[in-house]
Design a protein around this nucleic acid. Structure first.
Lengths: 199, 199
DNA sequence: TGAAACATACCAACCGGTCGGTTTGTAGAT
DNA sequence: ATCTACAAACCGACCGGTTGGTATGTTTCA
């Protein structure tokens, strides 16, 4: 069964190469030949493992999806109040940004393709809704235990997501502009207490 | 001087056609030939007016930049308190989204290209910083007049921008998912008063 | 008439994808 | 252990089609 290992290795090499290539040059501008060159295999090998260029892109989306779902599921198992956990999450924003750093532009590529390809859009939407549900549950917990005000959790969760993705995209555009990690923490703090004055 | 008018018309037709084509199919997937077809001119006309495909894209970025700068400058000349103006701005989010609707995906295209092209990135960054300055000034006004708390206006302005762009990108991914305009209004309301509970 | 504005025909380069053939790995027979 | 037989994995030349860009000719108008 050593073929199985070889199979996995080649597949992994192709996906890694595709990740880098798509990140650097974008989906359309990246040729299958270049992916093969980076992976050190031939075009024949590529089309043996993947039906098409679209197929490997979809595989990358799926891999990213399951990876983040795994990271989201068992994590943060309810230690402390909901507001504390929200702060903790914002604290980890910098690490997430750093760990995803090579893929940051790839995620933007996912987003772009999603706006033009229904299948990809549905996949990304699934991920997006998973995130939203996660935050919605967190906020409902907070409302239940009294650490958060009794606002519409669906709305608040979307706002939290908007801040997160907004900071994400801004960091992509201007990586050196600010300490986006610190800004994420500050955002949650501001969101918690509001910006309204005395009146 | 009727040549001048003709010149402007062709140029405008090409840029309008490029806007639509880039929006629908993206920069790379759009051919120069298709832009010409939509504009009803020939390739010769295209390359008479623009040096390259990149050039017309840059021209679109520049046009978008100056357009939004104009809309931002004289607009909202300080009627009411800063918090009121912030609410008013969120109220107009739906209209902005609607008016920019044909270009929404084009803006995403700008963002994508910006992450790979330094010249485009600088241009988009200029726009981004113009927005940030605008909000920063607005928030400083609010702090001065007491309608906003004395927080770091640079930080708050970035958070506001994060929410705006975050909602923008989310609306792009899932146009029918929610009333993003209403959500924008609600976001500002939440941002004003915070989500923290009794403690 | 001459310069500006546009059209037409064309090209080299590249693209995603195919295909006939070759190597590699391994299960079973001996 | 070694040979056989076969399938999985891989190679790279090749194809039709498309692309951004050019070269050259034609129209329009001051």
């Amino acid at each position: 069964m050593r073929n199985e290992q070889r199979r996995e290795e080649t597949r992994a090499a192709l996906m890694e190469a595709a990740t880098q290539a798509f990140s650097e040059r974008g989906y359309d501008a990246t040729g299958v030949a270049e992916i093969c060159r980076r992976a050190g295999v031939s075009k024949g090998a590529f089309y043996y493992h993947f039906e098409s260029k679209q197929a490997i892109f979809m595989a990358l989306v799926a891999a990213w999806l399951s990876e983040l779902e795994q990271a989201l599921g068992p994590a943060f198992p309810g230690a402390g109040s909901a507001s504390d956990r929200l702060q903790e999450l914002s604290h980890r924003f910098r690490d997430v940004l750093a760990s995803q750093s090579p893929r940051v532009t790839l995620i933007l590529e996912f987003w772009t393709q999603a706006s033009r390809n229904e299948a990809i859009r549905q996949t990304v939407l699934t991920l997006y809704r998973a995130f939203q549900s996660f935050f919605e549950g967190l906020i409902q917990d907070g409302i239940g235990e009294g650490s958060l005000r009794g606002l519409d959790s669906a709305v608040v969760s979307r706002v939290v997501l908007a801040i997160a993705s907004g900071l994400f995209f801004q960091g992509l555009l201007d990586p050196e502009g600010t300490d986006w990690g610190a800004l994420a923490e500050e955002s949650v703090r501001i969101l918690m207490s509001g910006i309204g004055g005395g009146g």
